[in-house]
């Protein structure tokens, strides 16, 4: 048990604990805020895997973008500030069966798979390598993704800017 393992477990506990709150919390706002810690824990694990670019992108996109949007949504859809939206439990038995089947499959796969690690040491400055690859080998997917985002932006602008009826 070295320092890295300790840190790994700390992050793992943060991630899983927060994810537990997300799922089990009765208060939807608490769930939304607990996501922050889940994302943060995952980012921490990315850092431990020497994927610093990925970790920061995780923070930037999930925390800075998606989570803010999500919390905005949750806050604005509540009819009143004082009343909490409660998440209820329905269909317990079928859900239990499906979930346990899924969990069993996942655990089984985890058990059966032979985990191989490549002997190549991690690349130190990841950002420049990723940048180069995005603009050479993976240029097309990169551009397609940006075009899709542009379309989404234009669509959002079109919907938001409805002309006033004279």
């Amino acid at each position: 048990m070295d320092l890295f393992s300790v840190i790994f477990y700390v992050f793992a506990v943060i991630t899983l604990g927060a994810a537990g709150i997300v799922v089990f919390s009765r208060n939807i706002v608490h769930s939304a805020f607990a996501l922050l810690f889940a994302f943060f824990g995952v980012a921490g694990i990315y850092v431990l895997l020497m994927a610093d670019f990925l970790a920061i992108t995780q923070l930037m996109i999930y925390v800075g973008g998606i989570l803010v949007l999500l919390i905005f949504g949750v806050m604005l859809t509540q009819r009143q500030i004082a009343v909490d939206i409660k998440t209820g439990t329905i269909q317990t038995i079928p859900a239990l069966i499906i979930v346990s089947a899924l969990a069993g499959t996942l655990v089984g796969m985890f058990w059966v798979t032979v985990w191989r690690t490549s002997g190549i040491p991690p690349v130190e400055p990841t950002a420049s390598k990723i940048g180069e690859l995005l603009l050479t080998t993976y240029l097309l997917p990169f551009e397609v993704a940006s075009v899709v985002l542009l379309v989404a932006l234009i669509g959002a602008a079109m919907i938001a800017r409805r002309e006033k009826k004279a």
Binding site: T57, L59, V63, L67
Partner: peptide
């Protein structure tokens, strides 16, 4: 990225 935690 870190400053986005402030928003939350």
């Amino acid at each position: 990225a870190a400053s986005s935690i402030v928003v939350i």
